[in-house]
Nucleic acid binder design. Structure first.
Lengths: 181, 181
DNA sequence: AAACTTCTGTATGATAATGAACAGATTTGA
DNA sequence: TCAAATCTGTTCATTATCATACAGAAGTTT
């Protein structure tokens, strides 16, 4: 991982939080590049050094989160369900503003679908194909069932201001997912 | 006022908060330039683009606040005591971390004296020389009396986490200062 | 429809910040 | 006491960001 220039990291971090802040006030379509630049305290032109336009910016912002989740996946899939889920809930907690905003915004309705896709993809390798308990069940159904349940519970948890600690959520959701897959 | 480059403003702001944060943990002498650079997330060399060394940095940081206070002075000295003090207490509240740190730190014991000097200087023009009520009183004594009282009450207010709103403090302290000068 | 404002995307040259390197001073600790 | 580590202040070439300007698109007002 070639380390990025400090300035770039800061610029992108500013843009990240700026977009999130603005999306809490307006729908994404109403937000102008100028708005973002002002909120991030950056020159407007600087944004174009990194992104095509605001859609590209949002896209890459989402992409970054998905990549980080994927990295955690590789690391966590060796553990059992409950302990493997802890870092994910911690990640959601840490970035709850991003996720709640994205899940709430009308401007990015595709985000939920994208998150669901990502989750189902990760679940594929976790289905129990040995014990025979799932012999009668279609993979499609199991993935969709567990996937929507997982995204749904994450959504609920974040929107309700994370009423339980990540560890507890991981244990309980882990147990339920273990039964489903 | 030639407006400063955005980058400079950000760098200085980062340094400002970095120094304050570090001074809450260590005495100023224990803080290295490297510490400051790390905390501010800046290249160490960048600091030397703006300041001679860490003492110069602290000096200019203090200087900036004194200048801002002076600017408020010109603007506020036309009002009566109570309403004129409001912006000052608001300023102290806004920058309470700076002031409490500076007033508490053993590394900058001169700060209190410097603040007192500034305050007394400002009071000079406010002494009632007309009504005759101060005819018997020496200017030295009055300034020292009112100055230490003012600095003392500000110190108390900040250290006790600003238990009263700026407006109330301004009224009460304004009334007392009016009697003293 | 015409005039006006705002937003966009791009280009410019100027400048601030970067990481890396260096020698010398100070601190630390075996 | 010597060696190792850390901190300092400076230099360098490179790069990111800056302010500003422009022309065309899009959206508003009249």
């Amino acid at each position: 991982m070639a380390k990025v220039d400090r300035r770039i990291a800061k610029t992108q971090e500013s843009l990240r939080t700026a977009v999130i802040a603005l999306m809490n006030a307006k729908s994404f379509d109403e937000i102008t590049i100028q708005d973002i630049a002002d909120q991030a305290n950056l020159n407007r032109g600087t944004i174009y050094l990194h992104y095509q336009d605001k859609y590209d910016l949002l896209d890459k912002l989402i992409e970054t989160h998905m990549n980080e989740l994927s990295e955690m996946d590789e690391w966590a899939c060796k553990l059992d369900w409950s302990s493997g889920l802890v870092p994910f809930f911690e990640y959601f907690e840490k970035n709850h503003l991003f996720f709640s905003t994205m899940l709430a915004s009308k401007g990015a309705p595709s985000f939920r679908a994208r998150l669901l896709d990502y989750v189902m993809e990760g679940f594929k390798g976790e289905i129990d194909r040995e014990s025979g308990k799932n012999a009668e069940l279609s993979e499609d159904v199991m993935l969709q069932y567990a996937g929507t349940a997982y995204v749904g519970i994450v959504e609920w948890w974040i929107k309700n201001k994370m009423p339980h600690p990540p560890k507890m959520m991981a244990e309980q959701v882990g147990a339920l997912l273990g039964r489903s897959l």
